[in-house]
C-alpha cells in the first residue's frame, strides 16, 4: 500500500504541472502536506496503541508493519511536499527532524531483524533474574570466604562486593566500557596480595580468586545481555524524542504557514 502511495504521488508530481512551480503552497502541496501531517500523527500513535491492551480484533504486528512502510513513504510524500525548497527556517527544521526520525527508525528495523538472534543465543535458557541470582550467590560465597581475612585483605573482597556495577550508563552498556570494573581491580589486587601469602591464608585467597574469576565470567555474560538489550532499545532514544520535537516543529510549521499566508 505504501509503495503504491509513493509511486502514485511521484507520478502525480511529475505529471501534474502546477504554476508557478511545485511548492507547499499549491493545492497539491496542501494535499501532500495534509496527508503527511495526518500520517505523522497516526505513526506517533503507535506509542499509545502498543500500551493500550483493548479487547477487539487488532494485531500489533500489523500495526508495526504498517508503521514501518507508511513511515518510509513519508520520505517521498514530505519531500514532494517541499517541492525541493529548503532553507534555514522552521519548515526545513520540521523536515530534517522527520528524516532523523525515519533514519533512526531504519536503524530500529535493522536492530529488530538482526539482534533477537544474538539475544537468544547469548542467554540460552537463562533468565535475567537467574543472571542476577547467580551474581548474588557468588557475592554471598565471596562474603563467606572472606571471613577469616584481615582488614586489608577483606578490603579487596569488599571492593568487588560493594563497588561492582553490573550495567552502568547507556554508552557504557553499549560499548562494554567496564575498564575500571571493581571486580577486575579486585582480581588484580588479589593477585599481588597472593604473592606473599603462605599456609591457610594462601588457600583462602586461592579460593577467593577462583570466586572472583567466576564472578567476572558471570558479569561478562550478564553484560553481553545488557549490551544487546541496550542496542535493541538505543535507537528509540533518538526515535521517540525526535518524534516529539518533530510534532512541535510540525505544529510551528503549520501555524506559521497559515498565520503568514
Amino acid at each position: 500500500m505504501a509503495t503504491l502511495l509513493c509511486v502514485t504521488l511521484t507520478a502525480a508530481y511529475f505529471l501534474i504541472d502546477v504554476r508557478p512551480r511545485h511548492s507547499g503552497g499549491t493545492w497539491m502541496g496542501y494535499s501532500l502536506g495534509a496527508l503527511g501531517a495526518a500520517l505523522i500523527v497516526w505513526l506517533a500513535l503507535l506509542g499509545v496503541r502498543k500500551r493500550a491492551v483493548t479487547a477487539g480484533h487488532y494485531s500489533l504486528k500489523a500495526w508495526v508493519s504498517a508503521h514501518v512502510y507508511l513511515g518510509l513513504s513519508l520520505t517521498v510524500i514530505a519531500t514532494l511536499h517541499t517541492g525541493f525548497q529548503f532553507g534555514m527556517n522552521v519548515h526545513t527544521l520540521a523536515y530534517v527532524l522527520m528524516m532523523l526520525v525515519i533514519v533512526s527508525g531504519l536503524f530500529g528495523v535493522w536492530a529488530y531483524a538482526s539482534l533477537p538472534n544474538l539475544l537468544s543465543a547469548n542467554r540460552g535458557e537463562t533468565t535475567r533474574r537467574q543472571m542476577l541470582d547467580a551474581l548474588a550467590t557468588l557475592d554471598g560465597q565471596l562474603h563467606e570466604a572472606a571471613q577469616p581475612l584481615d582488614r586489608d585483605m577483606a578490603a579487596i573482597v569488599r571492593l568487588s562486593l560493594e563497588k561492582t556495577d553490573i550495567a552502568g550508563g547507556y554508552w557504557q552498556r553499549v560499548f562494554g566500557l567496564y575498564g575500571g570494573c571493581a571486580n577486575d581491580r579486585a582480581i588484580e589486587r588479589l593477585a599481588r596480595a597472593r604473592q606473599g601469602a603462605r599456609g591457610p591464608e594462601a588457600e583462602t585467597l586461592a579460593q577467593i580468586d577462583a570466586l572472583l574469576r567466576k564472578k567476572a565470567e558471570a558479569l561478562a555474560f550478564a553484560r553481553r545481555q545488557v549490551r544487546i538489550t541496550a542496542l535493541l532499545e538505543g535507537w528509540t532514544f533518538v526515535h521517540v524524542p525526535m518524534t516529539f520535537a518533530l510534532l512541535a516543529a510540525l505544529t510551528a510549521h503549520i501555524v506559521s504557514v497559515f498565520f503568514y499566508w
Partner: peptide, 15 residues
C-alpha cells in the same frame, strides 16, 4: 475477549 489472546495480539514482531 474478541480478538483472541492478548499476548499474541500485543506482540509487535509476530514472535
Amino acid at each position: 475477549r474478541a480478538g483472541g489472546p492478548a499476548c499474541v495480539r500485543a506482540c509487535p514482531t509476530g514472535a
